[in-house]
């Protein structure tokens, strides 16, 4: 059985492509950094891949709103390829700027459950942090154990860096949120690390810096109704190893006790990528 193939987009200011490609490889994927224009011009075909990752960065400098211009390129130039990719049941992840791109493309949170195929209609947005500042800081995330998201399966809580100036997740009305919540699409939220596991999630906006951006309902990431398309503002790839956790010199960096990839030093972030690789293999 062949190794799952991962297309990691780059170009036009995407800048987390190297590490995003690397983490898929650490968990048994075969990833390739591919310039967006290779797909646009037809030199490469999205359908040849099993997983699509849109990494973080500053596509087009985030002018006119984060992810917007890259979202437009994808919405207008890759519409058919993306539609076919989702229709084929293949996982997509957008991290940070990639999440912003997927939201502005309309792939996230996507249409409702009755017809889950992409319609490329923007339903939510990610806007300037309430603080008005771009910041790099570590936050604590809690995941919805009932989410259909294939990426977050089995993950409950994680320390993770956020690195963004436009990470405040907004939707026009609370009924929009209620619909996503009912379907467990609000897959990951910012939580107070001092709360007991499983009890951190709240709809009331948490104070800065627990919520680094003032997101409505403390949303850090959402999935589409199929659970295959997922995006989040924090950077799980940046904690693939314990030595990237700020507390590793204190001997308290969390993570699995052992792993094939990194021995005692696997970080909490790697499981997300392993989930997708295992999902692809399980569907064969």
């Amino acid at each position: 059985m062949s190794t799952p193939r991962v297309a990691v987009l780059f170009g036009f200011g995407i800048n987390c492509d190297h590490e995003t490609a690397a983490v898929f490889n650490l968990v048994g994927g075969n990833s390739e950094r591919i310039h967006v224009n290779h797909f646009v011009q037809g030199n490469r075909v999205l359908d040849d891949f099993d997983i699509l990752a849109v990494p973080g960065g500053f596509s087009f400098g985030d002018h006119l709103g984060s992810g917007r211009l890259m979202g437009n390129r994808m919405r207008f130039a890759l519409r058919e390829q993306l539609h076919a990719f989702v229709a084929a049941g293949k996982p997509i992840i957008g991290i940070c700027n990639g999440f912003q791109v997927l939201v502005k493309t309309g792939l996230l949170p996507g249409p409702n459950t009755s017809n889950p195929l992409p319609d490329f209609v923007q339903r939510a947005s990610l806007t300037l942090n309430d603080s008005g500042r771009y910041e790099d800081r570590w936050v604590t995330l809690e995941f919805d154990p009932e989410s259909p998201c294939i990426w977050t399966k089995g993950i409950r809580r994680m320390d993770c860096p956020v690195r963004h100036g436009e990470g405040k997740f907004v939707m026009p009305s609370s009924t929009d949120f209620d619909a996503l919540a009912a379907n467990h699409q609000l897959a990951v939220r910012y939580v107070d690390p001092s709360t007991p596991l499983g009890q951190g999630v709240t709809d009331e906006p948490l104070p800065f810096p627990i919520s680094p951006n003032g997101s409505m309902r403390n949303v850090a990431g959402v999935c589409d109704s199929t659970g295959l398309v997922f995006g989040l503002m924090p950077h799980p790839e940046a904690v693939y190893a314990k030595w990237l956790h700020p507390h590793h010199t204190r001997g308290t960096a969390p993570g699995p006790p052992s792993s094939e990839a990194l021995g005692e030093w696997e970080g909490e972030g790697l499981q997300m990528f392993r989930n997708a690789i295992e999902y692809v293999i399980s569907k064969r």
Partner: peptide
């Protein structure tokens, strides 16, 4: 300093700020 991205490339093992509260 926190307004600089000090962790892109996923390689920074000692960051500009350290300790319990980072």
């Amino acid at each position: 300093v926190r307004q600089y991205d000090h962790e892109v490339i996923a390689q920074t093992a000692v960051k500009p700020f350290v300790g319990v509260e980072r």
